[in-house]
Amino acid sequence: MATEGGSRFNIHPMEQFEVHPLFGDGPVHWYTPTNATLWMALTVLAVSLLMLVGSRGRALVPSRMQSIAESIYGFVHKMITDITGKEGAKYFPYIITLFLFILFANLLALIPGSFASTSHIAVTALLALAVFITVTAIGFYKHGAHFLNLFWVKSAPTVALRCVLAVIEGISYFVRPLSHSVRLAGNMMAGHAVLKVFAGFAGALGFAAFVPILAITAVYGLELMVAVIQAYVFTILTVVYLNDALHPGH
C-alpha cells in the first residue's frame, strides 16, 4: 500500500482494514490468530447464541430472543419458497447460514473499533465461490447436460441469435462470483472508509467538528441499513442462482 496518498488526513481511512496478529508482531501465517479470525469467530458465536437461546424455550408465546430467531427463520424460508418453490426448501440450512453469517458480520463491524471481516474480498470471494461451485454442481447433478439449456436459449428464433445469446449468457454466468463478492466487500469497505474520512475531518476542524460528527451519525444510520440490505441482497442472489440451477431453460 502506498502511504503517501493519505498523509494529509490525521486518520488514515484504510488503516482499519489491516489484518494483524492478535499476539505479538510476527508474520501472518494461515494458522495465526488475527483480528480477522477473532471477529469472524465472534460472528459465529453471536449467530449460535441467537439460535441456541432462541430455540431453547420453544414457548407458545415466544420470548424476545425466540421471536427474533423465529422471524429471521420465517423471513429466509419465505424468500426461498417464493423464488424457487418447494424444491429449494431442501437447501434452506445453507442459505440461512450464509444470511446469518453475513448479517452478523456486517452488524458487528459497525461497533466502533471492531474489524469489518466482510469488507475483505478474501472472505466474500470464498463465500461467493462456494455458492458458485455448489449451484453449478446442483445444476449438473439434477439436470445433467440439460443444465446447458441455461446458455442455449431454446425460445430464441434463429440459431445465429442463440449463438450470440450463448456468449452473453456465458459471460454473465462466469462473472457471477466476481460481482457477487465484490458487491458485498465494496459496499462494506466504502461505508467504513467514508466513516473514517469524516472522522478525519472532525479531528482537523477543532470547534467546528460538530458538523462532521453530525454527518458521521447520519452516515452510521445509513450504514446500518446498508449492512442489512447487503446481507439480504447476497442471500437473495444466492437463491436466484439456485433457482437457475433447479429450473434451467427459464
Binding site: G5, I83, V182, R183, G186, N187, A190, V233, I236, L237
Partner: peptide
Amino acid sequence: ATLFIGIAFAEALGIFSFLVALLLMF
C-alpha cells in the same frame, strides 16, 4: 425482491468502478 435484485445488479457496476479507483490509489 425483484426491486432489490435490480438495484443490486445496477449497483454492482458502480462498485466495480470504485474498486478500480481504490486499486489505482492504494
